[in-house]
């Protein structure tokens, strides 16, 4: 009887471990898939904001638009956005590559569809992109949207959550 109980406990433990490992793997996969998108600065945004053109990929157009919004916020946090002739580049809020690994759970929740990231995307061309901004590609659609990212608010959120330091921290 004891043997059976022990065996059952081992089985449950193994399942849990496999489940957790799978979850961690999913999270890593989510962010690893994030290495390939295009983003550019359209013009200097209003105070505290960034006006960007960003591309997203999805099986359907609406999914691609959702992904593009995530990409815009992701770019501001991790990649930075290149400038253009009349606007300087936007630096990444978390230039340290270890920040993501150190806060994997936080960012996983942050970027869950319809979650926190959305409150920093203020203005978008939320209709269906058309013409040059909508391309049918193998496996789905690639679309471009114009977004206004609330960059300063995003920075303050990451600062208050302890992900990045503020300018006067340490003094």
């Amino acid at each position: 009887m004891i043997k059976k109980v022990l065996l059952f406990m081992c089985f449950v433990g193994a399942l849990t471990t496999v489940g957790m490992a799978q979850k961690v793997k999913d999270r890593h996969d989510l962010f690893n898939n994030w290495n390939n998108y295009e983003v550019s600065t359209v013009q200097v945004g209003q105070d505290g904001t960034k006006f960007l053109k960003v591309w997203g990929f999805g099986k359907r157009v609406d999914l691609a638009v959702t992904q593009a919004k995530k990409n815009a916020v992701h770019a501001c946090i991790f990649r930075g956005v290149p400038g253009n002739a009349n606007a300087m580049a936007t630096p990444a809020l978390c230039p340290d590559p270890t920040t993501l690994d150190a806060n994997l759970d936080y960012f996983y929740d942050f970027f869950e569809t319809g979650s926190t990231y959305l409150s920093f995307v203020n203005l978008t061309t939320d209709g269906i992109p058309s013409g040059q901004d909508k391309r049918e590609v193998k496996g789905g659609y690639k679309v471009a949207i114009y977004v206004q990212v609330m960059y300063d608010n995003l920075k303050k959120k990451l600062q208050s959550d302890g992900i990045i330091k503020s300018l006067n921290s340490g003094f």
Partner: peptide, 11 residues
């Protein structure tokens, strides 16, 4: 506004 964030990053 254009140079603000780059400047803050440098700082």
């Amino acid at each position: 506004l254009s140079f603000k964030d780059n400047f803050l990053e440098g700082l």
